[in-house]
Computed example of a mutant assay.
Amino acid sequence: MKLTTSQVRYLRSLAHSLKPVVMVGANGITEGLLDELSNALATHELIKVKVRAEEREERDEIIELLCRKSGAQNIQRVGHVLTLFKRNSDKPKINLPK
């Protein structure tokens, strides 16, 4: 699902007050982390993820891998915090503007 600019702005405004619910630590991306990420996206649709990687290139690789494995879209990245969105196909929780 391709999001419009206004939809991305709307999602960023919703995510402003959110705290990270998933944290990528020293162990990197594990199956347990991917399961937790999938559960959080299914429950909330819009989440923040904290990536603890010092090098920018490493963070970029982790972010790309998280998006690919989860099927979520990268809404915003500020430093080590990433905002992801994945529409729940059964019961959408967030009503996006047109």
Score class of each variant (00 low, 15 high):
Gln76Cys: 04
Glu31Ala: 11
Val8Lys: 13
Thr4Phe: 10
Thr30Arg: 11
Leu33Phe: 11
Gly25His: 13
Ala72Pro: 02
Leu33Lys: 14
Arg52Val: 08
Leu65Lys: 15
Ala42Cys: 00
Lys19Trp: 09
Glu64Tyr: 12
Arg68Trp: 06
Leu34Gly: 01
Lys50Glu: 09
Leu14Glu: 00
Ser13Ile: 03
Ser70Gly: 04
Thr43Tyr: 13
Ser38Tyr: 07
Leu11Tyr: 01
Val22Leu: 12
Ser70Glu: 00
Gly71Met: 10
His16Pro: 00
Glu31Leu: 01
Val81Asn: 05
Glu45Trp: 10
Leu82Ser: 01
Leu11Phe: 02
Ala42Met: 09
Leu65Gln: 15
Val78His: 09
Gly32Tyr: 13
Ser6Leu: 14
Asp60Ser: 09
Ala53Cys: 04
Gly71Glu: 09
Ala15Lys: 04
Val49Gln: 05
Tyr10Phe: 15
Asn74Val: 07
Ser13Leu: 09
Met23Phe: 13
Ser6Cys: 09
Val78Ala: 09
Gly25Trp: 05
Lys19Glu: 11
Val24Lys: 01
His44Leu: 12
Val78Phe: 10
Thr5His: 03
Ile62Lys: 12
Leu18Tyr: 15
Thr4Ser: 15
Lys86Met: 11
Cys67Asp: 01
Leu18Ser: 12
Glu31Gly: 05
Ala42Phe: 04
Ile62Ala: 09
Ala53Val: 07
Ile47Tyr: 08
Glu54Asn: 10
Glu36Arg: 15
Leu41Gly: 01
Glu36Gln: 14
Arg56Cys: 03
Thr83Cys: 03
Glu54Met: 10
Leu82Phe: 04
Ala72Val: 04
Lys48Asn: 06
Glu61Met: 11
Leu66Gly: 00
Thr5Pro: 00
Ser6Trp: 08
Val8Met: 11
Asn74Phe: 03
Gln7Thr: 01
His80Met: 15
Tyr10Val: 03
Gln7Leu: 01
Glu57Met: 11
Leu37Ser: 02
Glu58Ser: 08
Arg68Gly: 00
Ser70Arg: 09
Leu14Lys: 11
Asp60Ile: 06
Val51Ala: 07
Gly71Pro: 06
Arg9Gln: 14
Val81Phe: 05
Glu45Ser: 06
Arg56Ile: 10
Glu54Ala: 08
Asp35Thr: 13
Lys50Tyr: 06
Val81Tyr: 06
Leu41Asp: 01
Gln76Val: 00
Ile62Leu: 13
His16Phe: 02
Ser17Asn: 12
Thr5Ala: 04
